[in-house]
Design a protein around this nucleic acid. Sequence first.
DNA 1: CGCAGGATGCAAATCGTTTTGCAAACTAGG
DNA 2: CCTAGTTTGCAAAACGATTTGCATCCTGCG
Lengths: 336, 336
Amino acid sequence: MTQVGRRPDIAAVAAAAGVSVTTVSHVLSGRRPVSEATRAKVEAVIEELGYRPNPSARSLRTHRSESVALIVPDITNPFYPAVAAGLQDVLLGKGYLLSVNDAALPSRALPEVVRHVLARRVDGIVLASYGATEQDIAEIARSGTKLVRLGGRFRAEFGDVVRADDVGGMHDVVSHLIERGYQRIAFVNGEQDAHPSRIRLEGYERAMREADRAIDPDLILSTTFTRAGGVEGATALLARSPRPDAIVCGNDLIAVGVLDVTRRLGLSVPGDLAITGYDDIEAASLVTPALTTVHNPAREIGRTCARMLLDRLAGDYDDVAREVVLAHRLVVRESS
Amino acid sequence: MTQVGRRPDIAAVAAAAGVSVTTVSHVLSGRRPVSEATRAKVEAVIEELGYRPNPSARSLRTHRSESVALIVPDITNPFYPAVAAGLQDVLLGKGYLLSVNDAALPSRALPEVVRHVLARRVDGIVLASYGATEQDIAEIARSGTKLVRLGGRFRAEFGDVVRADDVGGMHDVVSHLIERGYQRIAFVNGEQDAHPSRIRLEGYERAMREADRAIDPDLILSTTFTRAGGVEGATALLARSPRPDAIVCGNDLIAVGVLDVTRRLGLSVPGDLAITGYDDIEAASLVTPALTTVHNPAREIGRTCARMLLDRLAGDYDDVAREVVLAHRLVVRESS
DNA sequence: CGCAGGATGCAAATCGTTTTGCAAACTAGG
DNA sequence: CCTAGTTTGCAAAACGATTTGCATCCTGCG
């Protein structure tokens, strides 16, 4: 690989191989047949010169950037890096560049992040932000950028949706608590109007109804999907009397926050209080007592999102939208 | 924002504003002065048409892609998402696209990932991969892509380096154990030949020598920077007799693995065995007992990397390479 | 031997910007 | 009123690929 002067362009390759640029391009794209001899010659020269097609020039002409963006609400929530890894499992081999964009408040509002990636003309977006509004999604749709959403309500004109069965998962965890005999089962949820909050609440309510339990609005709180949210929620709930004997949490981070509070108050878990999480991030198995939770197959979700996006980019499924629901799995540990 | 037919290009804007494309370009770039009246008119039209410059065309002309790539050895290690968040704190406002690339084995070898991002002609790379070889770095340098490395040995021709003071950090944690009276202090390190392993070991050795302690090679093990690595290391060490009474770990993940083993063996921590980690990822404060560790300012490291890269991209510091060392902080918790 | 038709390769247009060399228009000084 | 000096704006040439419409060269068949 000689490295003299500037980068070789396709014309340099053509010249060195004694053919036209068209031919080189055809060798690269396979769009038209090229004789075996020429192909070999061209490929040798490409190797020799270390030629790599300029992606800007290519995408200017083809109107595809071969890049996709992942938008997440909080990259430090370990669920999302796992999703990102899953995306990359699929995308790297196809030559796609994966951009990861954190839309965590207060510094980064979602609409700003959406505009940012749209301005960069990515081919597709995987939107994992539960704070997404209809306007945000509509703006993406309007731009023609292919969209796969991770969770959220399914609507055909708003692209594909990949999600885990949260209603079922939350149902299972609550039923599990009921079976174990817990009586006053409280719920600390994430952001009030976020979609995952709503459907996890739905799972909670369904399980309670199935067991003929009354649903006490005083035992249901909305905070945020963070450790701090859990602290806040638990502090409020555990001041109530009579105290709940179980707290179901909207995700593992919240559960960790709840655990912080029980430690401070000197409560025993699960003796005085059962706690359950959701997602099964690594921390769930690290805390003491280890958390009962619902395993969310983050990496597999990422892979699925990537595959669906690629399908759309290939022009398949142009007229249909798909919703894929992945299986969940209840993981019973020490906290319940 | 009307949305009729195809996307407006700069010519459409010029036509609608009654000026030439040059003028529109000047309004956008501010490269040459434009009268206030024209500027206002052009800006109004841009808004009205929803015009956004095509980044491919722009970068084809300017030879800059306004994108940078982060390469990490394991995106599911929570240290790296924090670095990514720090990078984005700085890059988003400048319009840069951040690509996050996981080079985790076995599926993704580092050279492959490096070639992938180089082929995409990113402007700069933040390389956080401790598995990077001299060839990998040389390949980046040869391509002319600006490079900032997170950790690693400083060499002027290989770009800037940002790192925490690992030697000092490890020194502090080991000194702390010595002060507390621990006698047989073992060390479970990460990948044998990785740079962070080497310098953390250096900190360990320095602290031992300062205290006139013998360094027993049998008490020093290399595994991997993962939870599984910790399990492996602890299993080997705790079978020795006499048993070590403290295990210093190369990072928090390893420490968590060591903790797994002590639980299985029924050892009390820190009674029978002290354990320390490194990095202060969230999990360090979650486990029981909470880990004594060294706080690694991941987000701040990310921000610093971004700023240094931007400096270089601006053409500042063209002839110098800089090494920035960030302060560490010993965090004493329950495990020691 | 002539010619249809498939293989192969070429020249040129195109994608949407930035930027340079000039020209026109305006301002102000003498 | 003329001219030198500023502003301001235009036309056209890059940037580096893909792709289309044509030309050319072989083959082999009638």
